[in-house]
Design a protein around this nucleic acid. Structure first.
Length: 271
DNA sequence: CCGGACGCCTGTCGGC
DNA sequence: TGCCGACAGGCGTCCG
């Protein structure tokens, strides 16, 4: 479900409500997420204070003095803050209960998400270690993309969605960035010029920043930590708009499959 | 080493 | 109405 803007929105929504809270206990109702949730998390987190919440790529990091709780939301993962417990629904798999009676509840219908303990240096955790730069990091530049893509025959859209290259761009925002940059998603990554990679970098940063400002994109079931949808959907130029007119030139937006994912683009505006 | 396909799950939607 | 296949904001792993 969530790409960078959605995870960032959840991170900002949760942070003020969990910051400084002390964990009373962790309840794991169903440990069968993408990887089994370790029972040890209960002992590790008990009586720890949440010092802060950060985002790295599409992961949320809950910092404590003893180490870091790492969470990925997969396709349908959600976090909500409740001021007091309510009877759990079918997919409410984990509760992090604080000493003041409030709680952070993890819900995930498809169970593609995950919860891991990452210790004091989460950046060395295997899931984070090999990730590429954040899109807002100066290291993510047109020059960087150009250098990394030489000799690559892979379609530029898959290159852009590769977490080893840059993080945070999932199917929606990769489609949108390529539209804004005027680059065909099927073009071989190694055959995109430096100038066009500079435009692609700018387009990616622009679409992600704008999406964050609008609280992310809700297509079907994404909601933030307060249960509110994101409002960026109305700003999408191509995603989900097959056969509709291109907002720039009016010709019909095409849909193809690339790496088993739906890919939307304008044949006239993107080359 | 690379690129592409698979599989993990449940829910929803469209077509017959 | 019901059934069935396709598809959905991700990504580690396996295979050629």
């Amino acid at each position: 479900m969530p790409e960078l803007p959605e995870v960032e929105t959840i991170c900002r929504g949760i942070a003020p409500h969990v910051h400084g809270k002390v964990v009373a206990r962790l309840i794991i109702r169903d440990a069968r997420l993408r990887w089994p949730v370790a029972d040890e998390l209960c002992q590790l987190l008990a009586s720890q204070t949440i010092l802060g919440v950060d985002r790295r790529a599409k992961y949320l990091l809950f910092r404590t003095g003893a180490g870091t709780l790492l969470s990925h939301l997969g396709m349908t993962g959600k976090f909500r803050v409740l001021s007091q417990p309510t009877p759990p629904d079918k997919h409410d798999h984990v509760d992090l209960i604080f000493t003041d009676g409030s709680l952070l509840r993890y819900t995930d219908a498809r169970r593609f998400g995950s919860l891991h303990w990452a210790g004091q240096h989460p950046e060395t955790h295997p899931l984070l270690r090999d990730l590429g730069p954040e899109p807002f990091d100066p290291a993510f530049s047109g020059d960087y993309l150009h250098q990394r893509s030489r000799q690559k025959k892979q379609p530029v859209k898959l290159f852009l969605m590769d977490n080893h290259v840059v993080v945070g761009l999932g199917n929606i925002y990769a489609n949108e960035a390529l539209f804004l940059a005027g680059i065909s998603p099927t073009r071989a990554a190694g055959r995109v010029s430096l100038a066009r990679y500079c435009r692609l970098r700018d387009a990616a940063v622009q679409v992600l920043e704008s999406a964050i400002q609008h609280g992310g994109t809700t297509l079907r079931d994404y909601v933030d930590s307060r249960g509110a949808p994101g409002y960026f959907r109305v700003h999408l130029n191509v995603y989900g708009r097959d056969d509709q007119p291109c907002p720039r030139c009016g010709s019909a937006i095409r849909t193809i499959r690339l790496g088993q994912r739906s890919t939307f683009y304008c044949q006239e505006c993107q080359r």
